[in-house]
Design a protein around this nucleic acid. Structure first.
Lengths: 329, 329
DNA sequence: CCAAATTATACTCACTTAGAGCATAATTGG
DNA sequence: CCAATTATGCTCTAAGTGAGTATAATTTGG
């Protein structure tokens, strides 16, 4: 059977077979007190990454090795995000267009979750807050001003720039949908769509590279190397989606926590507030946690019970999972 | 900024950089009258695949080229499934263990959906029914006998083979959970978990390759080349999950269809029956379809209204999506 | 041409879940 | 002790889901 396969394969071959170099890129997330953060190198401009090498036992172990080597951070939970080839990257690196026939690069991106333990060699780890890269994504204290003051007018201008009328309407519709304009609901999962829309409208720095100085300055939000900010957006979107149906938040929590701490973490990730009583009801109904018997003593107010994650649920519900309430307010 | 990236990259490099060959593999699904099917080559033993080449503009276009070349089938909807490296493949190809230091292979797998139009050059396209590969996955006419008659006893025997008592219990629990034994609910999305469990228990042909003749024969279900059946299981699982929250079923439907045809397609994919009135309610409530104004004339019974998919929903609900009711019966 | 079979479609009902608000309890800091 | 703060429990309403029943419009067999 194997011989048959090989035969049919070489029959089918037509173009020149060739090799590619394979790059592994990590979006490593933690949620310390400063808010949800991503692990970076190079002054926050770059995600940890490196080539897949012969010495690596697997893609994931290669990723672990690179992240540990570059940042000293060990990884726990890892999941694959997306794989893309050079020319697959939407619009990025247009300045390289001339270089044909050079080596192809395949990039495999991953999302990793880790507990925020700011340890000894702090210097090498550069945790950067998500919302420095995406200031429009944090809606915990209401709709951020940047949306109505900057994004809305500039997106509308972009729409009006379109030649044909139906195209104008289409652009306006997309902008309104992605950013919850004109009274539409905000959908916190559309992180990638929003980034891509801003890229397409050439409002962010990455979209301006390679072309000459453009008319208007980029909007606020830290830019990153190559398409790393796009990959980060993919990771944020995936995580915001996933916490709703899988108990992954606990990968980001300390071993023992209060329900409010858990709630704050969910809110930080999703960028919106949740209804406290309903949140507790849902968590407890699903038996996701168990009391440790202890309570917090540290801060003001009534002491809260401490909980730990019931690791058994990982076995019980390989698929079913968590539900989290995200309210409108 | 690009220079900075390059510098930090080469600083970090430690092992030998090297190249890999990149393989593209497609799970192409259609739902003709015979039931949900996958496009194969080589007498149903192999999924269409081929190397990513310099001539390909992108990964997806490379995939399209290979599938069309090998089967004549054009692809519409495509999504990425998973990327893995050789040594990542769980246990597969153990007979190759001796060949160290050979070229690494990266495989990128995709799910493609297409309308089942059995066209002229039928000879080259080999559509095979899903449930020939996974006879335990079709629960439309009740729990298939293979589960209680073959799988349950052999999985229990495998569990008893474990040395320690807690390990035995763990294996029994996993088997019961995956296959809905002991009165547990059947979860149609666990396709991959079930395949992997059968692999681990060495009940299927793929798991026996490379080792000498084993005690017991493989259970029924067509085997495939290398780990292609595992990739197929991944695709089936993804699709069964996705039809519940995104309107992808319509990629598999003809331009015009009745609600019953739509329901039968969903049932065929998920391997279980749905409650007719509730199904219609949900589809119509969500405005997924619109009447064409025509009705069917062909068959017996009251003529059914014909519908078409409202393509506008793809814009309106980039994320929100479809809900489908899957009942117990 | 009628009756049975078949398919389509509309409606009802009980039960669960989700969103939102209110009430009470147990602390700390002056 | 009082005010502020946090924790925790409870209720109410609207919407959604699973399941069953009733009626309508055809074809097919006699």
């Amino acid at each position: 059977m194997r011989d048959k396969e090989k035969a049919s394969r070489s029959d089918a071959r037509s173009g020149e077979a060739h090799n590619a170099s394979v790059d592994l890129i990590a979006v490593v997330v933690a949620v310390p007190n400063q808010g949800p953060s991503v692990l970076t190198v190079g002054q926050g401009s770059t995600l940890p990454s490196g080539p897949f090498e012969l010495g690596h036992r697997s893609l994931q172990s290669g990723l672990r090795a690179w992240v540990e080597h570059q940042t000293g951070q060990q990884l726990g939970y890892i999941e694959q995000l997306y794989t893309f080839a050079d020319s697959d990257r939407a619009g990025a690196d247009s300045d390289r267009a001339g270089e044909r026939h050079r080596q192809r690069v395949i990039s495999i991106s991953y999302l990793a979750l880790t507990r925020a333990e700011h340890a000894a060699d702090e210097a090498r780890r550069a945790w950067r807050r998500w919302y420095d890269y995406f200031p429009w994504e944090d809606h915990r204290s209401g709709i951020p001003p940047i949306i109505s003051e900057v994004l809305r007018p500039r997106l509308l201008a972009w729409a009006d720039n379109a030649g044909l009328d139906p195209l104008k309407r289409e652009r306006r519709r997309r902008a309104a949908f992605a950013f919850g304009l004109d009274g539409r609901d905000w959908n916190e999962e559309l992180v990638l769509q929003r980034y891509e829309l801003l890229y397409e409208a050439a409002l962010i720095e990455e979209a301006m590279r390679g072309s000459e100085a453009t008319a208007s300055p980029p909007i606020s939000g830290t830019a990153m190397t190559a398409d790393h900010r796009r990959i980060l957006a993919t990771g944020v979107a995936r995580l915001r989606s996933k916490i709703k149906y899988r108990p992954v938040v606990f990968e980001l929590m300390p071993p023992v926590f209060t329900l409010l701490q858990l709630q704050r973490t969910v809110e930080a990730l999703s960028g919106r507030l949740v209804h406290k009583p309903n949140f507790r009801r849902l968590i407890e109904q699903q038996d996701l946690v168990e009391e440790t018997g202890e309570t917090t003593a540290d801060t003001v107010g009534r002491p809260a019970k401490l909980f730990r994650f019931r690791h058994a649920v990982l076995d019980e519900r390989a698929v079913a999972g968590t539900k989290l309430p995200l309210s409108r307010t």
